[in-house]
Design a protein around this nucleic acid. Structure first.
Lengths: 152, 152
DNA sequence: CCGCATTCAATTGCGAACAATTAAATGTGA
DNA sequence: TCACATTTAATTGTTCGCAATTGAATGCGG
């Protein structure tokens, strides 16, 4: 009978990388919360703003592809950003199916106020930049392998 | 003016480890979905079952500490597991404030049916066990450092 | 023993996340 | 041109996740 096999038991919570990732995501969320509260954003809203700060006037679909989110998540989220006067939602005239998301002046201005956020996160990570970059690349590679098997 | 600094821009989406973790968590969720559907569980419910398969008759608080979740999340989730006849919820007689969660026979039996899940995830990860263990340990260490700064 | 803080679960309200469906616009083939 | 499939958002319904509050049980100091 196994006695000290717990360190190898694949059915054990602490041996599962998925739980490590899951709980790390929540930990990030909790660290971000007070920083983003000051900006009036939730974390997913912050991600959308990051996308828009890189490229403005983007269809909902493109945002979804960048963030791996669908319209069921994005539509209400974008309506809240619109209600907060950070973005505008306009039907494309070329393709009436698309809704283009563009930044308002307030949305643009928020980028400056958000500049300190990544530094705060880096500090909370208590880790060198190079270590974080290496981890990030590994996690992204894992994510992409997982996403690859979704469509069989 | 910066031209090719995007690889260093800390405000760029793809440079943020938090987004890597966030999107990897969702990717795991999508891979788990079809596997857990067969067990009639969601991913957070599966995590609770993993805890209970390790130790039965646990107060809600202990489950919350293991999974970093609070009663606002766990109470309704546990009620759904109870409705599915996988767990029982009983007030502790020693301390009437506590609700003890115990497995039903069906709940116990589900552990066998769930045995194949970690292997499927490993296969989807397309990665050696030792690599995954190393990544897991790094991510857990990062998570614990993040959680450490929450309470200042 | 009593008053009071603490602990624990439950509740309420809001914002994701996603499956499934709907509806409108567009593209394509006969 | 017209039937039909595809694309794109929006909608509906269920489940998380958490902040804030509530209420009951417990523990502690005086």
């Amino acid at each position: 009978m196994p006695r000290k096999l717990s360190a190898l038991d694949p059915q054990r919570l602490d041996n599962q990388i998925c739980f490590a990732v899951y709980s790390a995501a929540h930990a990030f969320n909790r660290v971000y919360k007070p920083l983003l509260d000051r900006l009036g954003l939730t974390y997913p809203q912050y991600l959308v703003m990051l996308v828009l700060w890189e490229r403005d006037d983007v269809p909902v679909k493109d945002i979804g592809e960048k963030l791996f989110l669908d319209s069921g998540t994005l539509t209400p989220l974008l309506k809240r950003l619109e209600a907060a006067h950070l973005v505008r939602r306009t039907r494309s005239s070329e393709d009436e199916r698309q809704v283009l998301i563009s930044l308002t002046p307030q949305g643009h201005a928020l980028k400056e106020k958000a500049r300190a956020v990544p530094q705060s996160i880096l500090a909370a990570s208590d880790c060198s930049v190079s270590e974080l970059v290496a981890m990030k690349d590994e996690i992204v590679a894992l994510r992409d392998r997982l996403n690859a098997v979704i469509g069989e």
